[in-house]
Amino acid sequence: MKNSLLKLRPALLLLLAVLLPMLRAAAQATAPVDQPEMADALRQSGKIYVVVAVITVVLAGLLFFLISLDRKLTRLEKEVRE
């Protein structure tokens, strides 16, 4: 029994040498599927830029309002000081 296993050892090692890299390749092939889902389609279609543009316009509008409010206050402060 022991002898037969020893005889088979080179064959087993050869089998492992062939199989192990294959397992690794298989693991790599499945990895992207297992990766967490992200909004990749939204990015590929370029629609994400529409969202970015809308958010930027809204924010810019609010900040512009804040700046004009700041200027109005500065003018009013000058008036009250005089």
């Binding site: 994400i48 969202v51 970015v52 958010i55 930027t56 924010l59 810019a60 900040l63």
Partner: peptide
């Protein structure tokens, strides 16, 4: 803030 709203999404 404008940078964050663009870079934060992209």
């Amino acid at each position: 803030l404008l940078y964050v709203s663009v870079a934060g999404l992209l």
